[in-house]
Nucleic acid binder design. Structure first.
Lengths: 111, 111
DNA sequence: CAAATACTGAAGTTTTCACTTGACTATTTT
DNA sequence: AAAATAGTCAAGTGAAAACTTCAGTATTTG
């Protein structure tokens, strides 16, 4: 069922790749150029640029080109959306766990 | 079946698919058979079974076969691992944002 | 027992993904 | 101005993902 990518799809997809998480981990430390990002990754500049596009689509990073250098930074919006998703779903899961707990307790008495 | 540590790649990958998130949303309500899960999804039983395997690998769901029926339930371990990942990373991102704020403030005085 | 039900397994198809190459543009540096 | 640097673009490759079909295997049910 391949349907239109919604925000949360892009987010999870972006975070699902170890190279992209490594990029984010380094950008958390400080803003960096595409070349600087590429250096320890052992992949081409092109590949890094492609990862950056995906991170940008997920609003986990943003970039700005000045002269010939593109400077990359993390952007909090994507991360905050993830936090929101987790918050929204935690409630549902907790309710389910409560109910499961109650059912198990009832079984002890009841069955 | 092995009780390996939860792999964050598998987790994000599992959650990155809308069909799988739909499956989880329904399993949060109540345990269900594979057929019941398949019915509103418009995909084959086989496809659902494949999604379930991925959810199982991410420890977001687990299943048990009794007779000819496989009953599927959510499993909290994967979700908790996600929450832990978010917690771990929030601190780092917050620090970065603090530092960015401070750097901008310093620039005003300093540069 | 025969038929229906609930899945399972293997293999094939199509699409998407991560990554490359190589040619190109734009900006510094010397 | 020539050379080096930083990145971009278009196209291609191989592998993984998300399905499918079809032929089973158990397990109920009539």
């Amino acid at each position: 069922m391949r349907d239109r990518p919604i925000d949360i799809d892009r987010l999870f997809h972006a975070l699902g790749d170890p190279t992209r998480r490594a990029i984010l981990d380094r950008l958390v430390e400080r803003p960096m150029s595409v070349s600087q990002l590429a250096e320890p990754l052992g992949i081409t500049l092109t590949a890094v640029a492609q990862h950056l596009q995906i991170l940008k689509d997920a609003r986990l990073a943003h970039t700005e080109k000045v002269g010939r250098v593109r400077t990359c930074r993390i952007e909090p919006a994507g991360f905050r959306a993830l936090e929101q998703w987790v918050r929204d779903h935690r409630t549902a899961w907790e309710k389910k766990l409560d109910r499961l707990g109650r059912l198990l307790a009832e079984e002890d008495v009841d069955t």
